[in-house]
Design a protein around this nucleic acid. Sequence first.
DNA 1: AAATATTTGTCCGTATGTATT
DNA 2: TAATACATACGGACAAATATT
Lengths: 249, 249
Amino acid sequence: MAEETKIDGSGWRSGVALWRQIADRIREDLAIWATQDGGRLPSEAELAARFDVNRHTVRAALAALAREGLVRSERGRGTFVMRRPRIAYPIGRRTRFSTALEAQNSSGRIHLLRHALVVADAVIARTLALPDASEVLMLETLGVAVETPISFATHWLDAARFADLPAHLARTESITASLAACGVQDYERRSTVLEARRATAQEAAELDIGDGGLLMVARAINVDLSGHPIQFSETRFAAERVEIVVDGA
Amino acid sequence: MAEETKIDGSGWRSGVALWRQIADRIREDLAIWATQDGGRLPSEAELAARFDVNRHTVRAALAALAREGLVRSERGRGTFVMRRPRIAYPIGRRTRFSTALEAQNSSGRIHLLRHALVVADAVIARTLALPDASEVLMLETLGVAVETPISFATHWLDAARFADLPAHLARTESITASLAACGVQDYERRSTVLEARRATAQEAAELDIGDGGLLMVARAINVDLSGHPIQFSETRFAAERVEIVVDGA
DNA sequence: AAATATTTGTCCGTATGTATT
DNA sequence: TAATACATACGGACAAATATT
């Protein structure tokens, strides 16, 4: 933060308004300021000098961050960080959403958003070791912790084997318990592939993040004790709210 | 792709130009179009109708994607995807950069960008089990595969134990070989924490991605065979170029 | 081979939002 | 608050290259 490079010669050829670029860069530094000086940001005048823009532009940036709930300005006192720490989300051979959050005394819940019977595409069918164009059960779930949506996931399972699962899930709000009710005593994770990308409009709406907000996407295969794949999931985490912890790796 | 929601009443009030929002949404669909019709995108007129904007606005979006090297337009023919597949990057107890890429016959290399002796802050010192304010060796490296920067990493090590490491690293371009030369026969990863965020200006420059491009950040602790921490690293992957594979988890 | 349709490239102009002074 | 400069967004018209019939 010692020195800042000038953003763009005369402003905003990048397609992003100057006030928004400033807001994005202030957002990056919020974590640092949160730990210093009672969470106080530098004054508007100081920020204007640092980014080499007019104070009006800094005010527009701070107003945007205030709309996001990240800072609050108080007349005569200054502008302060309103931080929400990231939730640590462990990934391992025996990852489950509820236990993942209990470790930090947060109460986690899975809400079933919708379910449908669909025809598996080639990738899903091969992953679940089913014949092409088999019927599969698709579930969409929302993982919530501390009243905040954390993850939005789509799951695919063999329709023949897990037809009763949506009913169990709506009642128990637990994937583990619902699978047990369908005769799966235990399961474990075979592999997880992670990538980062921007949210689509639907994903942003479900997770209540800004349009085009950042996601961490985890594609996982769960297998039963005999090693047979029972579930393929794509879980989209609101990147700003979690960090993924890979145990022993 | 069947129906598109209208982006923003009158466009550019959100601080992000309409052409840029459209570029972001087209970018998401490139992977789909790449597999169809010879990698051809819908025509400018069709995209304009689909997003309900003027054709010139679509052209601005496509021009931005062309600057990123993602598409190429040819007069009279159309616009085509220039795809570069993501590199699979395995993370596990015995992760090493070079072997990670050999598996897919890509040649990976680590370039040492700079190194310095610095005073450890509280987090680094505690992580490396050193007294507060110890001197540590800081390295910055660039991981390159297929002529493309993949990762930009900062490493911290006990300065007393690894003073000769930069010289070895510049010569061998391998972390594993350099540690061996400093008397570490073997090491393994104790933990990895992953998060996603936007790149700072410096990170974007090192990785040659657009400003504010997406990163996957991995913070890892490597320990020697006796379990003593020898290295703490923060590796920033260009999100668009990699997927992280967590084996058996 | 020739006419026509499709697609991208370039030019004009107008209105509005952004950023500084 | 006002003036200025520039970027965004839209609309239309036409040229140039390619594809189709």
